[in-house]
Design a protein around this nucleic acid. Structure first.
Length: 500
RNA sequence: GGCCCCAUAGUCUAGUGGUUAGGACGUCGGCCUCUCACGCCGAUAACCCGGGUUCAAGUCCCGGUGGGGUCACCA
């Protein structure tokens, strides 16, 4: 592999839904690589055993393919630097940790999780900066040998310098310097033998000959640790490029999050956003094509995109659904009638989908002309919660409490991957139990949020047919709606009295 | 709180010392039209504040302020 070849990577962690932020970073990596005739590598960072899942990994791959971003190397297509799934590279990381240990750049830490928790508590109470106190940093060889002989669980920590500063040039931001002392002795190898992000990332980027690390700015604070690692290994660090973070459409423009904004790519696909429109829109986040042109293809973007200093705006761009929809409309209008109809059929207007609705409506319709009104909400996006919205709040409950319950339900539902009636029901019933709200209350809330009506086909079947992503979107919207209501006490809410 | 990043209209952005500060979404108005939408035309609205440097600062420097990120055996 030529030393100056541009090689970039996207390294998603398969711990949830395919995230729009992943697509954003992937797009910029991809466009950069292709502009320079380089390689785009997909690496799965699944070293968190508890949270990673194969289902999530598959969903991420599916979404990236949907967008049309093709990787040259990855877990599914292989490549010269494999394996591309970190869980399959455990031995590599262990060897490298061993190397650091030998060279005295790392040490074994026998502190228990409990001790670390107590330490953090103390630091919080004393208002001193949090971080590992280095208790095991100076253990003698004998002490370590004793612990090891006893088979004590341990981690491997990086020995950070106590003085000096990390200095690096971010390709977009210029020189950034941070005191080493601010970084504590990061765990590199967990007690389960798998690496943390920091070790795996540095080792893989080096072994995979990554030339430019292009990732989100939330990673800037961990650069000193990474630089220290490159130095300890005696490796040349790659060029660093930190992209701005996508933001919510709220007052403070916080980092984009599922509570405030749909973040799953599945949601956008289900909503009928075309992949080209999504890519085009993401490209507009921090970057501009030139001239006054806003609509362009991926190929056109590649031609011009280079990540030169100043070429990407660094203010965190707000992800604006309204503008995305406008742009998508432009793409839809490029379709012929035939193509548009084909797309609609592929979406929901097809036999398979109607077949799922049939059992839900057969007892409820008397004439064909009642079908569309009855099933309208299966084909809609956000619902207008007008008068029915009032019924979201159960008797003797407040809108505010109801909103909190909706949030709790939605957080819980985020974790449900198998979106089936038999999976949904126990989860929601468990929520009732935990929240101490009756199933009657909770089910009605969910029914109204999901269908926009107080009367619907059976709730769980309805939720399944509406779909995982749209259900969760509507629940989030319902919570927002509830919070927008004037604050009233439960007793007052029930009475029609004059407005205060 | 420490450290770091950032800062042009409500939102996405152009702008690289001299511009009536340009475009887009949104909003409002008009045209088109049986209605709506599309399309077209127009309007609304911005350089966070204070110091410097300079003949000249949105643009360069410093300091505030504001926002964000981060401080895990998660990534």
């Amino acid at each position: 592999m030529a030393a100056d070849r541009v090689r970039v990577r996207i390294a998603p962690s398969p711990t949830g839904d395919p995230h729009v932020g992943t697509a954003y970073v992937a797009l910029f990596n991809y466009a950069f690589a292709k502009h320079h005739g380089g390689d785009f590598v997909l690496r799965i960072e699944d070293t968190d055993r508890a949270r990673s899942s194969r289902a999530s990994e598959e969903a991420i791959l599916r979404s990236l393919r949907w967008l049309g971003l093709r990787w040259d190397e990855g877990p599914d297509v292989g490549g010269p630097c494999g394996p591309y799934r970190q869980s399959e590279r455990a031995a590599i990381y262990r060897e490298h940790a061993e190397l650091l240990l030998e060279r005295g750049h790392a040490y074994r830490c026998f502190c228990s999780a409990e001790r670390l928790e107590r330490l953090r508590e103390r630091q919080r109470a004393a208002k001193t900066p949090p971080g590992y106190d280095g208790q095991c940093r100076e253990l003698s060889a004998d002490e370590v040998a004793v612990q090891l002989a006893a088979g004590a669980a341990h981690t491997v920590r990086l020995k950070m310098p106590r003085t000096g500063e990390a200095v690096f040039d971010d390709q977009l931001r210029g020189t950034i310097r941070m005191p080493f002392a601010h970084s504590d002795d990061q765990v590199l190898l967990k007690s389960d033998g798998l690496p943390t992000y920091h070790l795996a990332n540095v080792v893989d980027d080096h072994l995979m000959a990554i030339s430019h690390v292009v990732r989100a700015e939330e990673w800037i604070p961990s650069v000193p640790k990474h630089l220290r690692l490159y130095e300890a290994f005696g490796w040349q660090p790659p060029r660093m490029v930190h992209l701005p973070l996508l933001r919510n459409n709220d007052k403070n423009k916080s980092k984009i999050s599922k509570r405030r904004n749909p973040v799953s790519l599945d949601y956008y696909r289900e909503a009928g956003i075309l992949p080209q429109a999504m890519l085009n829109f993401l490209a507009l986040m921090g970057w501009s094509f030139g001239g006054d042109q806003e609509k362009f293809t991926l190929e056109q973007m590649i031609e011009r995109f280079d990540l030169a200093p100043g070429s990407v705006g660094l203010g965190g761009p707000v992800f604006d659904l309204e503008k995305l929809s406008w742009l998508n409309g432009l793409y839809l209008r490029d379709l012929s009638d035939e193509q548009l109809v084909d797309q609609l059929i592929a979406w929901r207007l097809n036999r398979d989908y109607f077949l799922r609705l049939a059992p839900l409506v057969r007892e409820r319709i008397r004439r064909f002309d009642e079908f569309v009104p009855l099933t309208e909400f299966f084909f809609s996006g956000d619902l207008e919660l007008g008068a029915v919205g009032q019924q979201l709040v159960p008797k003797k409950r407040s809108a505010r409490d109801t909103a909190a319950v909706v949030d709790a339900l939605t957080d819980e539902l985020d974790g449900v991957r198998d979106w089936l009636p038999e999976a949904l029901e126990p989860v929601l019933r468990a929520c009732c139990e935990r929240l101490q709200w009756t199933s009657r209350e909770v089910f009605m809330i969910v029914r109204i949020a999901v269908s926009g009506r107080a009367a619907s086909p059976p709730l769980f079947d309805t939720m399944v047919a509406v779909g995982r992503d749209l259900c969760r979107r509507r629940l989030r919207q319902a919570a927002l709606w509830l919070r927008a209501q004037p604050h009233t006490e439960p007793a007052v809410a029930a009475a029609p009295g004059p407005k205060g």
